[in-house]
Amino acid sequence: MSRPDGHRGGAGSRVLVIVPARNEADSIAGVIADIRAAVEADIVVIDDGSGDATGAIALSEGVELLRLPFNVGIGGAMQTGFKFAAREGYDIAVQTDGDGQHDASFIPMLLETIQAGRCDIVLGSRYLKNSGYKGPLGRRLGTAFFSRVLSLMLRQPLTDATSGFRAVNRQLIELFADEYPRDFPEVEALLSTHMAGLRVEEIPVRMRSRGGGRSSITSLTSVYYMVKVLLALLVVRSRKRMQRAD
């Protein structure tokens, strides 16, 4: 079980790996094993209203479990993890998907980047180096589009703005515990980070094709994704202007 007063993860920082999972009973045990093999950290599985044994498997694996009574979306699930991390006093929170597409062996590199203090959030990018990632074309185009938009807004080159494989420091844990987008949160959260005057960095990672489960993004929702995120970006920017005017 967890030891809230224990120091792990190297360099004296307490690390929580947040694993949002919805109906990932097939892959969740493997994901937990991979994380444990890669890093010494507490693990919390956020069961986002699964109808299968995801939560039960996580409990039997001996990790922390936060079970949402109904589906609140990836953003709402991640925020639950940030609230837990904020309350329990963790220094770094890592986000990795419950479907096994993120290669846990890169988590130590994410942690080192945060611990080096060069940035407040680090993204694991599939495209920074030629990682051999071959996702669906539509997804790659969407990622390229949002990476371009965000690169312009943040005035820094970004290659994988939609990556859900990332780590944040204590400051962002507290910020995200307080406010985090409900669905399709990845891109919007980066702009919020920038608006709060915090720094983003990318490191190259490898990603696997999906194990069990399906992506939360189907072709039907991709149009909604684009419009919603663009609108959200506009809103976040205009809010900042309002604050400046005050």
Binding site: E64, L66, L68, P69, V72, G76, T80, K83
Partner: peptide
């Protein structure tokens, strides 16, 4: 929607505390 999400998250955290 915001309120129900807040409650769901609170419930998840409290349920975990109770289990522990």
């Amino acid at each position: 929607t915001d309120q129900s999400q807040f409650l769901a998250q609170k419930l998840a955290l409290l349920e975990r505390d109770l289990r522990q």
